[in-house]
Design a protein around this nucleic acid. Structure first.
Length: 292
DNA sequence: CTTGGGACCTGGCTGC
DNA sequence: TGCAGCCAGGTCCCAA
């Protein structure tokens, strides 16, 4: 028994998180008043590999002097619409963050953006998975993404149609950005818990009622997380350095070994398609159509 | 065509 | 005390 608790504690520490839709939405909302309407006067690239699609020098030249006309989010991408028509696209992957202010420059800082109002913000990413790129046509990127889960385009029918020809675990389907944009590991787990669906159920085997429940749960979970300014489980922080509080309302995500708040059963953790997956064996029964 | 699995990258931890 | 080895995550790419 002692060994089990050691393993549980070990997993609890190992758990990482990345910015998903609610976190990127929060970054967008909080960064917006500091950048929209102002110019990026210069970019210091401390790590060239953070830029994809062109050289670091070209990236800096094309961004410097451009006004930021809009700041948008699509899926997990943050998009700066620049005056020259190009879009500066940021993906945070695991540990990326955009931070306002100079005290945040350290060995993990990858780029510094100077603004015309004298302020600046930095892109910081300890694990160097995050990427920035400059695109002429943003549709090249966003066209590959599924619907925004909080838009009116995302209906139970759209979800049902998307899942219908996918013979894969529902957990894997929720992580497919081409089916729904913006859901990552933790919000997939939370949405499945809220709709009482086992993560290994086949995507194309859910009943219309289950799909309707899942649709409602996805929207509820994401809206709640946005109102809590995202979840700060590990490295995610808002542009001003403050933490989000969505993690305090999690029922299963990052709660491996702890009691389910609904039925009291210990939360289990399994691997689904090589992704750690937390669920409640009491509330999310396998039922029929289980993929094992 | 769909599905699955490994690579990428690094900090933080374990265990020798 | 030191260090090799392992693991997490999202996306891309390739193999089956």
């Amino acid at each position: 028994m002692q060994k089990a608790s050691v393993i549980i504690a070990w997993y609890a520490r190992l758990v990482q998180k990345m910015p998903e839709l609610p976190e990127v939405e929060t970054i967008k909302n909080e960064l917006m008043p500091h950048v929209v309407g102002y110019s990026i006067t210069g970019v210091e690239l401390l790590d060239d590999s953070v830029v994809t699609g062109m050289s670091g020098g070209e990236f800096c030249r094309m961004v410097a002097g451009q006004a930021v006309e809009k700041l948008e989010r699509r899926g997990k991408y943050l998009i700066f619409l620049l005056a020259n028509g190009y879009s500066l696209v940021v993906h945070f992957r695991m540990t990326g963050a955009l931070l306002l202010g100079s005290k945040n420059i350290d060995r993990h800082t990858r780029a510094v953006f100077h603004l015309s109002i004298g302020e600046h913000f930095v892109f910081r990413d300890p694990r160097r998975f995050g990427v920035m790129r400059l695109l002429q046509d943003i549709d090249d990127l966003t066209g590959k993404l599924g619907p925004e889960p909080l838009s009116e385009n995302f209906t139970p029918n759209v979800l049902a149609r998307g899942l219908s020809n996918h013979h894969i675990p529902i957990k894997a389907a929720l992580l497919d950005q081409g089916l729904i944009a913006g859901i990552g590991n933790m919000y997939a787990d939370e949405s499945l818990f809220a709709s009482h669906i086992h993560p290994l159920r086949k995507a194309d085997a859910l009943s219309p009622e289950e799909i309707s429940n899942l649709h409602r749960s996805i929207q509820k979970i994401l809206r709640l997380a946005i109102s809590d300014k995202g979840a700060s489980v590990d490295t995610y922080v808002r542009p001003d350095g403050q933490e989000g509080t969505a993690q305090f309302k999690f029922n299963v995500a990052h709660r491996y070994g702890k009691a389910c708040p609904v039925c009291g059963a210990p939360i289990q953790r399994i691997m689904v398609r090589n992704r750690g997956t937390c669920f409640c064996p009491g509330c999310q029964s396998p039922g029929q159509g289980l993929l094992l």
